[in-house]
Nucleic acid binder design. Structure first.
Lengths: 206, 206
DNA sequence: CTCCCTAACGCAAAATATTTGCTTTAATCG
DNA sequence: CGATTAAAGCAAATATTTTGCGTTAGGGAG
């Protein structure tokens, strides 16, 4: 009788009960991790704490790793109390140091691990960098000098070595690793303001 | 009666039955992944295929993720048929390109994902870099010119951006990403043979 | 505002997976 | 060649995940 309705929506419903369930589950995960650690955390446990049936969790997230990764991603919000002073040679190293301190800590590493576990390797990337781009951009925008490089170049020079070392190195990281990289990077890019040493990196990507 | 014997050994027994079981299990994982993919691979499945009881697998590896990660690590052996010609400006970019092709492929990404899943975030690092250091060192050793940088510097400049982009970026990678980075790196380090642009990186670490 | 439609939840049974205690096997060492 | 013991097998006990179906409550359409 009725016309063909355009009912093509996807994903969970944005509000109402679904939202309440999601919040309860997320809160339960956070609480249980704080209380018992994430080792041996199970779906039925989370369900019980959240006042929800296990099957609900299984249907929405499909396993505990995905759920934990999801929670970790919500908490990515780097509430970065950044006060750029306008001098890149101060701001970027300061930020780099703060970033390393944040990431290379027990909760930081746990977060990275959790996010990584939800990665399928192909489809959707781990969203870790999404949280750093705004901070770097903020610093660049605040610079009083002209900026002849890309946010992505900073990621390659500062963030990439840090993350790579964190994940793929046994020995504890030098505490100034990121800061030093930032200092070197700024130095190199201020010395010759019109042509940076590394070819394609001054051309904005993406 | 007997003296206090120094029976402090650890880890699984190196040979005999234990070894046979490990080999059978690893082979079963490889076969099953090839046959059905790794999604939904279960311990009982692997056990059945390997002709082993599930409890054996549970006791040795503790879950399927650890087992798969273990298998992935065994296959890390980059049988890299590298023929350095002695010119860094040729060898390093060529290797970088090959490395990217290998890593940024379906099996390569799956391998990275698998290895990453076994990472606990703290104790033992993902052993991915262990496979690349020898290759880089080989290239450096073969160089006819004096080398004024570190293997670790190459990792920071070439490998780190590649891995970081693979894991943390949605868009497909530029196929020349690693090669370009290698070209830039060599260029920078050959132009001023006595003092590279980036401070601490010419000092061997570790 | 009310009524429908349906996505998402709850419940409980069934199917699987995991843990555990005990027994058996076979490497390794004296 | 035994004795010792780490590791494997077996099976029962638990715990988990899956699944089918009835129920609830958002979110339009009228």
């Amino acid at each position: 009788m009725s016309e063909i309705r355009n009912t093509s929506r996807s994903g969970p419903r944005p509000g109402g009960r679904s939202l309440r369930v999601q919040e309860a589950v997320h809160a339960a995960v956070v609480a249980l991790i704080e209380e018992f650690g994430r080792e041996g955390l199970t779906v039925p446990q989370v369900a019980a704490r959240a006042g929800v049936t296990p099957s609900t969790i299984y249907r929405r997230w499909s396993d505990i790793a995905t759920l934990i990764s999801d929670v970790a991603q919500r908490n990515l919000r780097t509430d970065c109390p950044l006060k750029p002073c306008g001098r890149l040679s101060d701001d970027l190293p300061a930020w780099a140091e703060m970033y390393q301190d944040e990431m290379d800590s027990t909760p930081g590493r746990a977060m990275v691990r959790d996010v990584l576990r939800g990665w399928d390797g192909m489809q959707k990337a781990c969203p870790l960098l999404d949280a750093v781009r705004p901070s770097i951009a903020l610093i660049c925008d605040a610079s009083s000098e002209p900026v002849n490089f890309d946010v992505e170049a900073v990621i390659d020079a500062v963030v990439a070595p840090l993350l790579t070392r964190m994940i793929f190195t046994d020995a504890p990281l030098a505490s100034t690793l990121a800061r030093d990289a930032a200092v070197a990077f700024v130095e190199q890019h201020l010395s010759n303001a019109s042509g940076p040493g590394r070819g394609q990196q001054s051309v904005p990507r993406k």
